[in-house]
Design a protein around this nucleic acid. Structure first.
Length: 457
RNA sequence: GUGGUUGUAGCUCAGUUGGUUAGAGCGCCUGAUUGUGGUUCAGGAGGUCGUCGGUUCGAGACCGAUCUUCCACCCCA
């Protein structure tokens, strides 16, 4: 116990069953990505320090795992910085690489770096782990998978429409019903800030607004005041705390509030476009809702913002998110390249499916038949049959050791292998096999042809 | 980064105000059953009580540090 090895905080090992279930989710997502015309790419697990730093705000920078240089990494550091414990100055000197924090920024880097080889609009998907030096919690890990799909090089709102459909399709396939696709638009949030004459406090304003359904109206107002937003300004936009009605009714009331804001009205128009399209092509199981309090931390969104809420009966943070960013590649020197993308949080979706018992019983193929090992001659006889079964696509194996029958049977039972073949000298003489069905316990003497047929069924 | 919480056998957990050799259920191994798993019965193995240090005649229990778990905040998938 004491001397046993361990793994770092916030990381996990996955058993065979868990991996199979994860593959089930990944395959579902991948199939839909492909159907919607996205191409797979992969990027390295670590990037240059400068590629990642400064892209996620101060909080994000703190959560990026930095990789210590190899060799005499202290040589490049100014000794005065070490003496004065100037961490900020030392870090970029001793860590020139860092683990990726998400898939979007590496994707932007990829697009800029390969711009001459890509055909725009470029649609890519990417399913890889990311790392964050966060404190673990329910559904929060330090290593987790993101499944991203993005389009760059198109300003068309049809992309947003398609992403809503893509979300709906994936969760429908996963039998996860009642998922809420919350949508908002950064331009509406800017519009609010504009109306109250405090555009400089946009971030503070949205961060506070984002907490509305969690801490309530009063606490939100409290926080806004604490951030220096005037009571008068808050009064002006008070109505947004209590928006009523369905999607289009909310749009109508917002139009009144945002009358004086050009960008606000633009944002509303975009939302209307998406909503009307979806109305004409109803979603299968998900629900599209307008949520003006939806802010999402990432600074780079400029248009639509998505967030996916799990069905209300499970307590879980968002299981996906995304949005439009007009200038993501700008930070790497490629201007005028509008992009929009979404992400699925694999690990959280897993927890939700587990809690709601939505995983199919058989998430993956497993061994269908195992042959008892009676000795060298018998094993050879078994192996010949196994090879033919494998050619037919049947997962078959031989118990490797000449162990006691009871032990071999027990092993088959534990692994829930549905068929066991007993082929000893008796069977070999008649070129037969004794096939035992482990579910029913019944046993039959069959030839190879019949064996294939029975095991496959 | 802030505050709280958890750790005893492979797993789930008991363990009294600090006092002999730290227990249970499940699982595991062996046998009853030399070509038959699940059920039953009998027997058995397995723990430096997360780690390091301290208090004490004596620590699984008390104190400190550290690691880990889970939770809230922050932030986020």
């Amino acid at each position: 116990m004491a001397q046993k090895p361990s793994i770092p905080k916030g990381t996990r090992d996955f058993s065979a069953q868990e991996v199979n279930k994860r593959h089930y989710i990944i395959n579902t997502i991948k199939n839909q990505f492909t159907k919607f015309g996205f191409q797979p790419i992969e990027t390295p697990s670590f990037e240059n320090y400068d590629t990642l730093m400064g892209k996620y705000g101060e909080e994000g920078d703190r959560l990026i795992f930095k990789i210590l240089n190899s060799g005499d990494f202290l040589k490049k550091v100014n000794p005065n910085d070490i003496k004065s414990e100037n961490t900020l100055a030392i870090t970029p000197k001793i860590a020139e690489k860092a683990l990726r924090y998400d898939l979007t920024v590496p994707f932007a880097r990829y697009v800029v770096q390969h711009q001459n080889e890509l055909d725009f609009p470029f649609k890519r998907y990417q399913i890889q782990p990311v790392w964050r030096a966060d404190r673990p919690q329910k559904g929060r890990f330090r290593e987790f998978y993101q499944c991203d799909a993005d389009v760059v090089g198109s300003q068309s709102l049809w992309q947003e429409v398609e992403f809503v459909q893509l979300y709906d399709e994936v969760f429908t396939q996963l039998k996860l019903e009642g998922v809420q696709i919350k949508i908002n638009n950064r331009k509406i949030l800017s519009g609010f800030a504009e109306i109250i004459g405090q555009s400089d406090k946009l971030i503070d304003f949205t961060v506070a607004l984002d907490k509305l359904d969690k801490i309530g109206e009063e606490a939100v107002i409290e926080e806004m005041k604490a951030k220096g937003i005037t009571a008068q300004a808050i009064d002006t936009i008070q109505p947004i705390f209590n928006l009523k009605g369905d999607f289009s009714e909310q749009i109508a009331s917002l139009k009144n509030i945002l009358l004086a804001s050009k960008s606000g009205l633009e944002g509303l128009q975009e939302l209307e476009f998406i909503q009307q399209a979806i109305e004409n092509m109803p979603l299968k199981t998900a629900k599209l809702t307008l949520d003006v309090t939806l802010a999402r931390g990432l600074n780079y969104y400029t248009g639509a913002i998505f967030e996916i809420a799990a069905p209300p009966q499970v307590k879980m943070g968002s299981i996906g998110g995304g949005g439009r960013y007009d200038d993501l590649t700008g930070i790497f020197g490629l201007k005028n390249m509008s992009g929009v993308g979404i992400s699925f949080g694999l690990d959280r979706i897993y927890l939700v499916l587990e809690e709601l018992k939505l995983f199919p019983k058989k998430t993956d193929a497993q061994t269908q038949v195992i042959f008892i090992n009676f000795g060298h001659q018998e094993a050879l006889y078994a192996m010949q049959a196994i090879r033919l079964l494998r050619d037919e696509g049947v997962a078959a194996e031989l118990y490797p050791d000449e162990a006691k029958m009871k032990k071999q049977m027990n092993y088959a039972n534990k692994r829930a292998i549905p068929f066991v073949v007993l082929a000893g000298s008796k069977e070999m003489q008649k070129e037969q096999f004794t096939l035992k069905n482990m579910m029913t316990g019944e046993q039959n003497n069959v030839n190879l042809q019949e064996l294939k047929k029975l095991v496959k069924a």
